[in-house]
Design a binder for these strands. Sequence first.
DNA 1: TCTAAACCTTTGACATTTGAAATATTGCTC
DNA 2: GAGCAATATTTCAAATGTCAAAGGTTTAGA
Lengths: 170, 170
Amino acid sequence: MMAEADSGTVDLEIIVQGTQEGKKQELRLWLRMLSTTKLVSQEIRRRLRNEFGATLPQFDLMAQLYRERDGLRLGELSKRTMVTNGNVTGLVERLEADGLVLRETPDGDRRVTVAKLTKRGEELFSSMAAAHEGWLRDMMADVDPAIVTELWKDIGEVKSSVNNHLSGAD
Amino acid sequence: MMAEADSGTVDLEIIVQGTQEGKKQELRLWLRMLSTTKLVSQEIRRRLRNEFGATLPQFDLMAQLYRERDGLRLGELSKRTMVTNGNVTGLVERLEADGLVLRETPDGDRRVTVAKLTKRGEELFSSMAAAHEGWLRDMMADVDPAIVTELWKDIGEVKSSVNNHLSGAD
DNA sequence: TCTAAACCTTTGACATTTGAAATATTGCTC
DNA sequence: GAGCAATATTTCAAATGTCAAAGGTTTAGA
């Protein structure tokens, strides 16, 4: 596929970063990121369901509330969980029905709804979070810790590049 | 947090890879992978909608059919797209209604349904695929190609580790 | 103050998603 | 060849997801 130089010398630069197959690398990376993420998500979903009777979106939402004990406005929750507004409404409704979250409207601004974890919500999330962290350590047990750190850094670059090339709203 | 040796010497190994922050690296990596994947997915979803009136799951499904011109059984489609069986049924139904996919039952085994792209489906997918690849190159434009390649390799290790530590079915 | 723009959440229509149960067909075994 | 496990798909209920439009509230300006 790749033509060798006519003399004995080899053009290393081309081999290393150039034409090699360097066309659809981004697509290839994306497909692998996507399938890996799906794989992990499915595993976490399964364990959350089996061990805690919770769903992944519920876990994500509670995670945000757990670190903001004063609660969050639904719009803010929407941004942080990357879930649409309308979706947050239903999610919070169901969690409230289960007694894990409560909603209140602050005095100052009656347009706003703030969601907080209840006592029960805090306790449940606390144990889910501990398990969750363990599952991830488990799943990534075969990966060299140095690579984990490196991946974190490099994926950060991907994320920031993507953020700089969005078409719609931020 | 980390006990210092009693003499003047410092245990570099512990500092470097041990306690430093080395506790929740896997969790941190996972959160970043997840948010990055969501970000890219949303961008692709938006562009598919705006430019082609298609959804992301439809695109994924058609991608599998595009590379198997003889069609695929629904179960096989389910595995390859990592989408549940029941879900594939509905997706294919809607694509069939739009004239992009057709279903047929082979003579040999009447339990089976095979889905294929129609002519129109092939044409549409072909142009979507070209655009899709371009979007990804765009979004990752600021990332050094060497890092793209490295990420592909390292994420492969993550994926294979995860595959070795699944609780449920393969 | 009256009103229009801006802000925040909910609602509604529809698509996707999961997990489990139901159906249909095949292949094997006795 | 009747019964039964194994396969393959569909159906169902409930949850999640998007997008757009509609509902209240607040804020600012005329």
